[in-house]
């Protein structure tokens, strides 16, 4: 990053425009454009230019914010509906933008950056303890859908044996929430407090799919990545091993599991 640089006039101008776009004070820029420029250490000639071109500079605040907020409003419609209903959406967005945590050049990373900011700051979660889970559930399928392609160990087989480990597809996620955040809607955005386990994966066509899991199935998909299948199933009280192996074979056929590998 350039924060350690001695600000040249060009860098100072770029920082002033970034502040105009991202910071709350930018909302009142047009009341005193030259004063805004001076408060950012710009030269008087530049301050007069900010005065002369105030309408065009103000347009950048609107355009850049539209660009940054469109993926968030698209990807988190229920989170937005909840916070709009509670009168907190604007404050949430202002805090997010002011934190300047969109670092990636990839446009697809803006929405995950918002989720990361919620996780890091805990914003709003004292009032809405399910907020982070809600936002995560909203973006889960997108994260799975766009997970980068990766390779797998070469010796995977498609039919599980009791001594095997599970190797999940690299895009697959097993998630557990304290709330039923996958059953909310924009009209009813507050989830029921009920433990929920989901399997998100890409099918053979590369399209995202979501499946409800029992607590035992979710635990098995986690434990059997490092323990032998038979041992993990027994520890979880899954006494019908044949049925368990059949379920895992089906998940492999669907694409959630990449394959099975004999444990060392």
């Amino acid at each position: 990053m350039a924060e350690g640089l001695t600000p040249t006039p060009t860098l100072a101008l770029q920082r002033a425009l970034a502040a105009l776009v991202l910071d709350p004070e930018g909302a009142t820029f047009e009341e005193d454009p030259a004063g805004f420029a001076r408060s950012h250490g710009l030269l008087e000639a530049d301050a007069q230019s900010f005065q002369q071109f105030s309408a065009g500079l103000a347009a950048y605040r609107e355009l850049a914010r539209l660009s940054l907020l469109d993926p968030i409003e698209t990807m988190f419609p229920v989170t937005r509906a909840l916070l709009v209903r509670e009168g907190a959406w604007e404050a949430c967005i202002e805090a997010f933008l002011q934190a300047r945590c969109v670092a990636s050049r990839h446009y697809r990373d803006i929405a995950p950056a918002f989720l990361g900011w919620l996780a890091e700051t805990g914003w709003g979660q004292a009032t809405w303890p399910f907020l982070l889970e809600l936002a995560h559930a909203e973006i889960l399928e997108v994260l799975v859908a766009r997970f980068p392609e990766t390779g797998f160990p070469s010796r995977l087989h498609p039919v599980p044996e009791p001594r095997d480990h599970i190797v999940l597809d690299s895009a697959t996620q097993v998630v557990s929430y304290r709330h039923a955040v996958h059953q909310v809607s924009e009209e009813a955005p507050v989830p029921e407090a009920r433990p929920t386990h989901l399997l998100a994966y890409r099918d053979g066509e590369g399209r995202p799919q979501l499946m409800d899991l029992t607590p035992a199935a979710a635990a098995l998909l986690t434990r059997a990545r490092t323990e032998r299948l038979a041992e993990a199933a027994a520890a979880l009280g899954l006494t019908d091993l044949a049925a368990t192996l059949s379920l895992l074979k089906e998940l492999c056929d669907r694409g959630a599991i990449a394959g099975f590998q004999a444990a060392p």
Binding site: M1, T10, L22, L68, R100, V102
Partner: peptide, 18 residues
Amino acid sequence: SVDGSSLHELLPLPFTRE
């Protein structure tokens, strides 16, 4: 981008020699 923060907008450069 400025100071590691990407604005995802095409922002103008100053028309200066520097």
